[in-house]
Structures are given as structure tokens and as C-alpha cells.
Amino acid sequence: MSDVEHETASVFLFARFGTSWRFCLISRSRVGGQLAAGGHVEHGEGPQQTAVREAREEARLLAPLPPAGYPYPVAPTAWHVAEIPAAADSRCPHRHLHRDHIFIGVADRLLHPVAEPNTPSTGCPPQTCWTSRSRATPW
């Protein structure tokens, strides 16, 4: 493994569809599967700002961290930090390490609160999938 380390952030987004909760996965052709919204921390931003920006860019949703009305004090830290081996990409020509700051968010979906997942009315890009735990593909 390379000595190169990149700071990244991911956000597991949850939204209510009718009476059930679903979570958001983004198709990633480069890795051949689906992952949470996320990406590299840009110059001048922290991991929490990166998580919100990536939720906006990849799922086209606002994801308050934590959700509005959350009754407990919040520390400005990630839920978990994982060190993940990464393949060569546009930022590094060889294998390297991503230090991924993982956040949890609740998507604001007030326009279509009872829409079915993956329908045009959700307003999500085609690579976005809202799925339930029972439909999720295990790693």
C-alpha cells in the first residue's frame, strides 16, 4: 500500500417513503457496485461539510446532520472513521488509502413523502437507489 492518504467523507442517507424508511445508495461504475454518497474532502472544508456537499451533488438532496429537531447535543465529528484501501483514481495514479469520515443523515423529501423508490417523482438522478434493508445486497 502507498504512503498516500486522502481524507474522504461518506454519508448514509435515510428517508421516509410512506410508512417505511429506506437508505440511499449511489451506483459507482468504477467500483462495480453501490456505495453511500461520498467523496474527497476539498481544500478549505471539513469532513462534515464534505458529507453535506456530496449528498447534494450525488443524491441531489439536502441532508441535515443531524436532522432538524434532534433532541441531544451534537459533537461535530463523524459517526465512524474507517481506513479503506483505494485503487488508482483521478487524484492518485496508484493504490492508496482513504481515511473515510462516515456520517448519518436524514434526507429532506417533503415534496413526495409517499413516492415509491426509483420512480421519476422522487427527483433523484438515475444512479441513485433508495432501498430497504431486506433488498440491500451484502458485500
Rank of each mutant, 00 (worst) to 15 (best):
F17K: 12
G32L: 05
G32F: 04
E42L: 09
G38S: 03
V41D: 02
L35F: 08
S29W: 06
R22V: 11
V31W: 09
L25R: 15
A15Q: 12
G44C: 00
S27K: 15
F17C: 12
R22S: 08
A36I: 02
G33F: 03
S29Y: 09
Q34S: 11
T19M: 10
R16S: 10
V41K: 03
R28D: 13
A15W: 06
V31N: 10
C24M: 06
G33A: 08
E42T: 02
R28A: 08
R28Q: 07
G32H: 04
G18R: 04
H40L: 08
A37H: 03
G18F: 12
R28T: 10
F14T: 13
T19Y: 12
A15R: 15
R28C: 11
S29E: 15
F17Q: 08
H43V: 06
R30E: 15
T19A: 13
G33W: 03
S20Y: 13
A15V: 05
H43L: 05
G44I: 00
R28V: 07
S29M: 08
F17P: 05
G18I: 06
C24R: 05
G18T: 06
L35K: 08
L35M: 06
W21M: 13
G44S: 00
L25M: 15
E45N: 00
G32S: 07
S27C: 10
E45I: 02
